[in-house]
Design a protein around this nucleic acid. Structure first.
Length: 273
DNA sequence: AAATTGACCTGTCAGC
DNA sequence: TGCTGACAGGTCAATT
């Protein structure tokens, strides 16, 4: 479910509500991708300061430590005052505070909640170091760095975008969408992309992710923010999930391709190397 | 160093 | 109806 826009929409939907809250108790369901990292009771009494995001990680700063939350493939967060006391079968992390309860729902359990000492904690460093540029941060997402990153790689551009080493947050849906918007074939080796097209791709990543955040996420499936609301003005995918349907530009059928065991959707007529 | 591939886990859907 | 296989929005570890 969650690529950068969905994670950012989630962050915005509960960050200001949870800021200043004091942790009352923590309950765990089934194990997630990684263990919490310390006893849940050690979080009790801590105060939440702010909620940041790095790539697809949510970083919840506490007055002692930092909680890292990743939604994996199927995770979603709720923050509310009135939640059922008992955890459902797919709810695996629950943090009660004096302002409400933060609860992770994650059927596939590819997500993670990790308690660390902060940004410099080795566990946090291991996960966050090496992540690429933040596409919605103008200071970090630099055209020169992006262009140089493309020039250094022969990897097919779709896979390079998914990799997260050059730019973070572009997942399987948005990778197909930004390549369609910039009219680049997904198999094109990164270093073979012309300057003109690279520039279009750079802009498309910024514009499409920003628009998706504005609209509250994608239209696919059942994404909802931490208020449990779906968000009414969700972004329409132009190619993702549209195999065989007419291209919105030229009317020819959208094609499906497998790259790195993931589906890529594209228009063979509109997108060229 | 860069590029593949497999693994994690559960739900859903198409086809027989 | 039930079974089987394919697939799903992510990413890390192990292997070439």
């Amino acid at each position: 479910m969650p690529e950068l826009p969905e994670v950012e929409v989630t962050r915005r939907s509960f960050a200001s509500q949870i800021a200043g809250a004091q942790v009352l108790s923590v309950t765990l369901g089934k194990p997630l991708r990684w263990p919490l990292g310390r006893a849940p009771s050690s979080l009790v009494g801590a105060r939440v300061q702010q909620v940041r995001r790095r790539g697809k990680y949510l970083l919840i700063d506490l007055d002692r430590g930092m909680l890292m939350v990743h939604l994996g493939m199927s995770g979603s967060l709720r923050f509310a005052t009135q939640l059922p006391a008992a955890l459902g079968p797919h709810e695996h992390f629950d943090m009660q505070t004096d302002r409400g309860t933060l609860r992770l729902h994650d059927p596939r359990r590819f997500g993670a909640v990790i308690a660390t000492d902060g940004d410099d904690d080795p566990v946090a460093r291991k996960l966050l170091d090496g992540l690429g540029m933040e596409p919605l941060d103008a200071h970090h997402f630099r055209w020169e760095s992006f262009r140089d990153g493309l020039a250094r790689s022969r990897t097919p551009i779709k896979l390079l975008l998914l990799g997260g080493k050059l730019v973070v947050g572009v997942g399987n849906i948005y990778a197909s969408e930004v390549l369609f918007a910039s009219r680049i074939a997904p198999t094109t080796p990164a270093q073979a992309i012309s300057a003109i097209k690279a520039r279009r791709l750079f802009q498309a990543i910024r514009d499409i992710l920003a628009l998706a955040v504005e609209r509250g996420g994608t239209t696919l499936r059942d994404f909802s923010n931490a208020d449990g609301l779906p968000g009414h003005f969700q972004l329409q995918a132009k190619v993702y999930g549209r195999e065989g349907l007419p291209c919105v530009q030229c009317g020819r059928p959208i094609a499906l391709l497998r790259q790195g065991q993931r589906s890529t959707f594209y228009c063979p007529h509109c997108q060229k190397s």
